[in-house]
Amino acid sequence: MTTMTTVSARGTVQVENLTQIHRSGERTTHALDNISFTIPAGKFVSVVGPSGCGKSSLLMLLVGLAQSTSGELRVAGRPVAGPDPARIGVVFQEANLFPWLTARKNVEFPLMIRNMSVKERETKARDALELVGLDEFGDRYPHELSGGMRQRVSIARGIVQDPDVLMMDEPFAALDEQTRMVMGDELLRIWERTGKTVVFVTHSLTEAIYLSDHVLVLSARPGRIIDRIDIDLPRPRTFELTSSAEFIQIRNRIWEQIRTA
């Protein structure tokens, strides 16, 4: 038990022997099998795998929205017992903004839940919107924003409480290819500015390699970690990098594993 001793570093994510079995009536689904990994503070880590491998199940555990069957999970040195958005920010697949609130009010929502004063709420929301480059759009309703902008608002909502870790569940999956590339760069900029640990679930191998320090590859159900790859490509990363020999080699290696998993 060397790795699970309390590490005080903010932003570390420690997962040990995590197993999840869903039971609904007669059916049992073995979603995750004995998953272990450690993410040092401030790293950008992607989780990839074939569809239905339990990537999203893993993320639901990481943000405290689901219970594991066994195993241990610590974020910033403390176990995750339930949702804790001040420690673990979350960004969902679709932006999932409330259509009846303006962008600013959506970003303020988690602060309102914590009964923060109006003034403090406004300051924090303004800072968060500024960070994602939307300070001009706070008064717009979600339906008045583009898909990319909505996802930016969602990121602002995820980091408005300055959490140690940001967990993202296929956040750009619903966006078109170009917006997706732009959002990737945007996310890297935010990540570099804030120094948060990012756990990024995606089914796009290019996206995973382009953004990450490390990529975790999950097998088909029950999800097991079949590879962890350090991406030593230099930063800042550029679009040209995606056609370099090294990049393609990494992508092929992951693809080979996913295909045969």
Partner: peptide, 21 residues
């Protein structure tokens, strides 16, 4: 359901979810 999940992820109580979602 997604909106309810957002509220839950933000740590909303039942009363808060009732009022805000």
């Amino acid at each position: 359901r997604e909106h309810l999940m957002v509220a839950r992820a933000m740590g909303a109580s039942f009363i808060q979810t009732l009022r805000s979602v």
